[in-house]
Design a protein around this nucleic acid. Structure first.
Lengths: 343, 343
DNA sequence: GAAGAAACTTACCGCGCGTCAAGAAAAATA
DNA sequence: TATTTTTCTTGACGCGCGGTAAGTTTCTTC
């Protein structure tokens, strides 16, 4: 590696005796130049430390090779995990991923999108906050930037949506629980941040109705993203007020479930499906930590890999199609029931 | 909000009857123009949807207002949390945070830094992978870009380091555990990814030596970032081989501890400090979920807020100082013992 | 070897903004 | 009002690259 400082493409081209336009062509598509010149450029790249100036490159492009990834709350391991998978797919496909979190705040979500728009990204993978999102701002953004929504759907917004089938989540867990013991009551947040929670409650009510069973929903107070704490506090109240109506609790999501397990432990309730257990607890999402809870959490798992794969594949399709689909696509993946020890 | 599309600063300036250089000055420092012109510009900004082109702006700057934040593994809630706090401080201070994860891979860490260098960031907050980092590449990066390391120190690299005092972590937990029961054995990974783990082991050995007690270290096999799984598997082996040498286990970090708790539960060992408990378990970090484990985990907590505050403050100092300190600064914050039910 | 195709070179403009110098206008001070 | 100071305008250049047109060289193909 030579120490010669190269200031721009002109200098780099001169150094290896090739014209700048040819070098420029190479950087946009290495296959677009003759093999021999490609070799010369690439050996030079090994010798000298030159890479095109990102800002200059992107200034003249209608679109950059940046792909935005926006999640509602990155400190939630579910989103961290899905973001991780999306990022790696972007990198492998030659895009530059730019990862953002709305930190649970609708105004920050808009700020993030505003900032992202300036980057002229080739496309954006967006998991919106949901219910509290500033709908119009997001809609406007999606009109201007090729966007695929994931995890949380918003009617008519974005060129496509990729997520998991909330009804299937609940139908599988309810089915399993009713087959193997008392029918479940449903444990959720009063004011859930995203629409999946509502769909899950509706699915629960529908399933119970279909089975001819009496539904019972516990909506515990609390807002924000501290789900475990909300679940824990809510469960403590319920337990202290006499407990749940059945010995089987189905949580809207794993993080609430983790809080519930914590409350049960604190109150000396034994959770599980074996002899001498007081409560069965099941949940949804397959949160990265749900297999390490005590007891390990029976849950229905997102197909993380498929969601990430398909979301990214849909985005590249969308980009190739010029940023527009004739029809909005919606893809739901079927979750998978994971039996562990809690139910 | 008018629908007139504004293509550049020239048009925007013309529209409000101000010269482009003046508008440019405004965007670099709103206070640098007369109040009356500032008002005219800002009312226009409310009416029309114009913002300077990021790429064009940054092309002519030696440094941008981008602050890079790099963590070794974003799906680890500890890093997600600290990254979240750093990001918000950047935003509040008017920087554009750019968040990256090395996904646990040293080569990706180098790629991330290479990509970051092209962005000409004002500064970078870097938590390196540690032991497996490509030291020379990181050193070179730090020479070129004002960088503050956090969480994981690397001798002589970066202008400053901000982290937690590993010795204090361990001295507090060991002290507490020995005062209140049997002295602890130490539970760790064989090949820890980052240097904090080694410091904690050394601190344990030192403390035990000072107290005149016999140390006992369990180094369980495993590499990578699936700490819970590694802790769980390792603990299962130990338990099945006859158990720990004392009834008190001190884990190198909370994620290993979570795995250990999971193993204990599975084998029917009751963890806690009360009557009828088989094992006391304590740990370090105050992982976001450690208060929801069963039982809740006694641990020593990072002072997240102080680390984030001071790391960011140090970076702004560094930037103001032109990217160089006379002397490398190291700041360690004292962790805080958090007593919960596991020990 | 000639003809045609492919790949290259040279020369130039444009992108949107930072920045500077000179001069004009406005505001503050005397 | 006259003078100084501050702020603004005009005009121009440069940043590093994308892109194009016309001409030249190199590689195919028969």
């Amino acid at each position: 590696m030579s120490d010669t400082k190269i200031r721009n493409m002109e200098e780099f081209a001169a150094l290896i005796g090739i014209s700048r336009p040819t070098v420029s062509k190479y950087f946009q598509d290495p296959d677009s130049v003759r093999q021999s010149t490609r070799d010369r450029i690439e050996t030079a790249l090994g010798q000298y430390d030159y890479r095109p100036n990102i800002f200059a490159v992107n200034q003249n492009r209608k679109l950059t090779n940046i792909v935005g990834i926006v999640v509602p709350y990155l400190a939630d391991p579910f989103f961290a995990e899905i973001a991780r998978q999306l990022e790696q797919r972007c990198i492998r496909a030659g895009f530059r991923p730019a990862l953002y979190s709305a930190h649970g705040q609708p105004d920050l979500e808009v700020d993030v999108l505003d900032g992202l728009r300036l980057l002229k990204p080739a496309g954006v993978l967006l998991a919106p906050l949901g219910r509290i999102s500033q709908r119009d701002a997001i809609k406007q953004f999606c009109r201007e930037v090729p966007t695929v929504l994931f995890d949380s759907n918003m009617d008519g917004i974005g060129a496509a949506f990729v997520g998991s089938d909330n009804f299937s989540f609940v139908s599988q867990t309810v089915d399993y629980l009713t087959r193997t013991g008392e029918p479940p009551c449903f444990f959720e947040m009063q004011t859930p941040a995203n629409p999946n929670a509502n769909k899950r409650r509706v699915a629960y009510l529908t399933m119970m109705d279909q089975l001819g069973l009496e539904p019972k929903v516990y909506s515990v107070p609390g807002a924000g993203w501290a789900f475990e704490e909300i679940g824990r506090e809510g469960a403590l109240s319920i337990i202290d007020a006499g407990g749940f109506s059945t010995n089987t609790v189905l949580c809207s999501n794993d993080r609430l479930g983790i809080g519930l397990l914590s409350a049960c432990y604190e109150r000396g309730l034994k959770v599980g499906r074996g002899e001498g257990c007081d409560l069965r607890v099941a949940s949804h999402d397959d949160h990265p930590f749900s297999r390490f809870t005590c007891p390990s959490l029976t849950t229905a798992a997102h197909d993380y890999a498929s969601v990430a794969n398909h979301a990214f594949a849909t985005l590249t399709e969308l980009i190739d199609a010029g940023g527009r689909f004739d029809e909005r696509q919606e893809t739901l993946f079927t979750p998978k029931l994971i039996l562990r020890s809690s139910a």
